[in-house]
Design a protein around this nucleic acid. Structure first.
Length: 595
RNA sequence: GGUCUGGUAGCUCAGCUGGAUAGAGCAACAGCCUUCUAAGCUGUGGGUCUCGGGUUCGAAUCCCGACCGGAUCACCA
């Protein structure tokens, strides 16, 4: 099936050929949506043909317009036109639009591409196990989940994965602080989520550590020596060493504390509505990475310095030299990522690997790509680093240690509470609704507001979040779109017995605009996939909801007396609801049936 | 300093593969509920698209330069 644009482009191509003898490609025919202030649905820009025609733009537009209008009956889709300078505004015939609406309505999985037989793995979230998730992770999780959904819609078989950074000095710090100051506290004994409890001890470590540094410096030591020599950091490093040696006591403590954290993360993920098909743990992949580095060393791809550390020379790639193994033989971030990549490609027939990681790590992924390629992994060269921007607060970046982080659990709870509060102001809305249902609606709306707020902005750009100002529920927001959907469902519920399969009749421009908008959905999904941009979907849904609300305000659906007009409006409303729900689901946003 | 990236209304953001008079939301102001859900609709005000050159029929959009901001260039992750 050809799109309207494709059909028109073909016709313009023919017209230009017969009128001016100019051979052109349909790709060169510029067609855009007609601006609001002119009559028409689509506009052909005729400037490119002016030269060959040797006529004024206005004249060229009119000649092409006439050719389109006088096309054979079976091909004729242009009802009439108007030409404004070099712009040929086309009014598409109502019969085309009605057929279009019916095609959209009757298609299953409208906007979704058929399976392409390829597997894409999307890595996102990737938390450290020493503190709870914050707003930065929220953006990562929402983007990762949405990208996975969008690529699925574009025909990929997607495997969502998570690499948990469960080992290293950071978790040892929490473990040590808990051992020293914890008095055996547990999530059960404190009523705290496990990740928050561990986070508290991570902070506690830092406080005690700073105290020691201060004391040492008061005793005349310089700062650097104090930082390196403080007993606490020595103890933490000793603990890490024991961990690497497999010391049973340390391992047992580590297992216990990580299990608390995972229970906490699970709860956060569940509330956020994200999930994974396969989770990797760095404690299980870093050794594989070391093996690969050793192999590379033996094959002469890397080199060892005198101090025993192992490096990759990337100067030939325009980069620097990169450390792969420390002089004590322990692995670094890069080593682990190599190991993780290897295991993943052993586990799955991956055609495309996507890493959803902040733009601060662009250098890292550039290097990873080169190293994997050098090690002979065919997937290395074209791995995708989906690099997104930071979430900034009014006074800059979030800093864990300065207590300026916005906690993910708190934020979601706050959003839901706000949504509950807002709905209380809406009296006489939904009579006789149960408490549970009201809470469920508040959950969808609160989370919808948060998710939309984050996903509507271009992922590549940094975005600002002001904790002082609550996230809106009016205007260009998730709840606005959810509300539009709920309204539609309300109408459809009431219309249930008056839906027939009678004739359809278009009766105004707003209906046409809506159909035209609906027809763009598959293209929007494709574009979002190509650009890795949930924002494209979000903006589309907003526009569609705007158009529908305007239509809804101006015309009665159930009150329409002409049955064929009423049937068209019902069908149109139904389909708008369907597409809105589909689009929002690609953002991981649920739609309430009423609100 | 090298590399990457951004600068559009008071604020948050669209638009950026060149097209008509640059769009939304929030905030401000003024209207619209005995009628399908007012979390809605309509209107008013608000802009040297950072600045300067260039490319062309046409530039917020492409190119060059400047200024300002952010990221990165760790034996951190």
């Amino acid at each position: 099936m050809f799109t309207l644009e494709q059909q028109l482009a073909e016709q313009v191509k023919q017209a230009v050929k017969s009128l001016y003898g100019l051979e052109t490609e349909t790709d060169n025919v510029q067609i855009q949506k007609t601006k609001q202030q002119f009559e028409g649905n689509l506009t052909v820009v005729v400037f490119p043909f002016v030269k060959a025609a040797r006529k004024a733009p206005q004249m060229v537009a009119e000649e092409i317009g006439n050719a389109l209008v006088s096309a054979d009956n079976d091909k004729r889709i242009v009802d009439r036109f108007n030409a404004v300078q070099g712009f040929l505004n086309l009014v598409i015939s109502p019969s085309y639009w009605m057929q279009c609406l019916q095609d959209i309505t009757s298609s299953d999985n409208y906007g979704m591409q058929p399976a392409n037989g390829h597997l894409m793995m999307v890595e996102y979230s990737s938390p450290n196990t020493n503190k709870p998730l914050h707003l930065g992770h929220v953006r990562n999780n929402l983007l990762g989940y949405s990208i996975a959904k969008i690529q699925e819609a574009n025909g990929w078989h997607v495997v969502k994965t998570n690499i948990v950074n469960d080992r290293g000095i950071h978790i040892c710090k929490s473990m040590l602080a808990w051992q020293l100051f914890g008095n055996g506290e547990t999530p059960e004994s404190t009523g705290k989520k496990g990740d928050h409890l561990i986070g508290d001890y991570y902070v506690r470590f830092d406080i005690e550590y700073k105290k020691q540094i201060k004391e040492l410096m008061a005793g005349g030591m310089d700062e650097d020596t104090a930082k390196k020599g403080a007993p606490l950091i020595k103890q933490a490093q000793a603990m890490l060493l024991k961990w690497e040696q497999g010391d049973p006591e340390v391992r047992a403590l580590w297992e216990k504390m990580n299990s608390w954290v995972y229970a906490g993360f699970d709860e956060t993920y569940r509330m956020m509505g994200v999930s994974f098909d396969k989770i990797y743990y760095e404690s299980q992949t870093y050794l594989e990475g070391k093996k690969e580095v050793e192999r590379g060393l033996n094959e002469g791809l890397f080199y060892r310095r005198e101090d025993g550390s192992v490096w990759a020379d990337l100067t030939g790639n325009g980069l620097d030299e990169k450390l792969l193994l420390r002089q004590d033989g322990t692995s670094v971030y890069m080593t682990q990522d190599i190991g993780t990549a290897k295991l993943r490609f052993q586990d799955y027939p991956i055609d495309k690997m996507v890493y959803v990681v902040g733009n601060e790590q662009e250098y890292h992924f550039k290097v990873l790509s080169i190293l994997l390629d050098r090690l002979g992994f065919r997937f290395g060269k074209d791995l995708v680093h989906f690099s997104y921007g930071m979430v900034e607060l009014p006074n800059g970046k979030m800093k864990s240690r300065e207590g300026t982080v916005v906690d993910a659990d708190d934020l979601m709870a706050q959003m839901i509470a706000d949504a509950r509060e807002v709905s209380k102001d809406k009296v006489n809305k939904i009579a006789g609704i149960s408490d549970e249902e009201a809470q469920e609606i508040a959950r969808k709306v609160g989370l919808g507001a948060l998710k939309y707020f984050i996903l509507k902005v271009d992922p590549r750009k940094n975005m600002l979040f002001n904790p002082e100002e609550s996230i809106d529920f009016n205007g260009n927001t998730g709840p606005f779109i959810q509300y539009t959907y709920a309204r539609i469902q309300s109408v459809l519920r009431k219309a249930e017995d008056s839906i027939t399969t009678g004739n359809l009749q278009i009766s105004n421009d707003k209906e046409v605009e809506l159909i035209q908008h609906l027809a763009e959905y598959p293209h929007v999904v494709r574009q979002a996939g190509q650009e890795f941009s949930p924002a494209v979907i979000a903006n589309y849904c907003y526009q569609l909801a705007c158009d529908f609300n305007s239509f809804y305000h101006d015309y009665s659906i159930l009150g329409e007396t002409d049955d064929s007009i009423k049937q068209l409006r019902l069908l149109l409303s139904h389909t708008v609801g369907k597409v809105l729900a589909s689009g929002m689901s690609l953002l991981g946003i649920e739609m309430p049936e009423r609100m």
